[in-house]
């Protein structure tokens, strides 16, 4: 990857709302070229989506998250893809991962209450025919998500002037 592309991706990863003018200023490229590179990155599906990280709790909208580990039985001719599709189509399911270890698949479910999540798992997930067993872990507090730390960032203590 060339230096400019790398810069643009890192800038946008940190701040999806960085303007082309600002990116131009940070990379020394003309604005038009920045726009071209971004369009190409979008077209090539390297930039998949522009997202906002929202602290829902801060907004007064409480959500409950649970990590659910699943053991699945695979049927002939059907690999993990089929069960993964069944799972990810539920909007309540926020992530689906094939994992190694004691379980096969790990999903994250979001709901308005523990009860809602528990019922969703019991009714919609546990009853899927490929799902052999489930193990539900409610999330009590998230400290870091996708590289983003929710606590106040560590502040460096420096003297305001040094040689």
């Amino acid at each position: 990857m060339d230096k400019h592309t790398w810069h643009i991706l890192e800038i946008l990863e940190e701040n999806a709302r960085a303007t082309p003018e600002n990116i131009a200023s940070q990379t020394g490229l003309p604005v038009a070229e920045v726009n071209d590179i971004i369009s190409k990155l979008e077209k090539d599906k390297i930039i998949r989506k522009y997202k906002t990280i929202i602290d829902w709790e801060q907004a007064g909208e409480d959500y409950v998250y649970a990590i659910i580990e699943l053991k699945v039985v695979l049927e002939r001719k059907q690999g993990y893809q089929t069960i993964a599709e069944r799972l990810y189509k539920f909007p309540e399911v926020r992530s689906v991962r094939l994992i190694s270890g004691d379980h096969d698949i790990s999903i994250t479910v979001r709901g308005r209450s523990m009860k809602e999540v528990a019922f969703f798992v019991a009714e919609k997930i546990a009853t899927l025919e490929q799902v052999h067993s489930t193990s539900t872990h409610f999330v009590l507090k998230t400290y870091k998500e996708d590289g983003f730390i929710f606590d106040e960032p560590e502040k460096i203590k420096r003297l305001p002037v040094s040689p």
Binding site: E154, I156, R158, L159, P160, V161, S162, P163
Partner: peptide, 28 residues
Amino acid sequence: PSGIRRFFDIVCEADDVISLGVGEPDYI
């Protein structure tokens, strides 16, 4: 005496300052 030192004394009395005067990384 270091010219930087002299400046340091002035700066420490002000608040709400943005410092472009630091000769060390802002990374921990």
